[in-house]
């Protein structure tokens, strides 16, 4: 027995009434349908375009790189670090020629980047 047959059995003496009711199902008018279609389009979310490129991911390292001047600056920094490390480890003889103070106590030499004269000139 199909669902429709079972429903008809249930309907019994009311079957002609329901049959008439189904045939005379209320229909909306065209104006209302047009308004509903306009409402659906008005409420519709904007189309998602597949061509839109997602924003590039930004991390802290990328931000830092940007702040110090990008890859060229990073290359210079890396070269300076490598040179400093080499000077420290190899301690080449030539470095002493460039050092103005006592090389024996170089590690303890106080080096004043700005003299009292400089501060006086700056009125500090």
């Amino acid at each position: 027995m199909t669902m429709t047959d079972r429903r008809r059995d249930d309907e019994g003496p009311l079957a002609p009434w329901f049959e008439a009711g189904r045939e005379a199902a209320p229909r909306p008018d065209g104006d209302w349908m047009a308004r509903m279609e306009a409402l659906a389009l008005e409420e519709q979310p904007a189309a998602v375009s597949a061509a839109v490129t997602p924003p590039a991911r930004r991390g802290r390292l990328r931000d830092l790189l940007g702040q110090i001047g990008g890859w060229p600056a990073m290359a210079g920094l890396a070269a300076a670090c490598a040179a400093g490390l080499w000077i420290g480890v190899a301690s080449p003889d030539g470095v002493a020629q460039w050092w103005p103070g006592d090389t024996a106590n170089a590690g303890y030499t106080t080096f004043d980047p700005a003299s009292g004269f400089d501060f006086a000139m700056l009125e500090l």
Partner: peptide, 26 residues
Amino acid sequence: YAAGEPAAARALTARLGPRLFGTAMR
């Protein structure tokens, strides 16, 4: 519809509108 296809808005309205109106009318 949620992805923004206007044809889906029209098709769903045509499919659901009369049924919902008919039920409400009854």
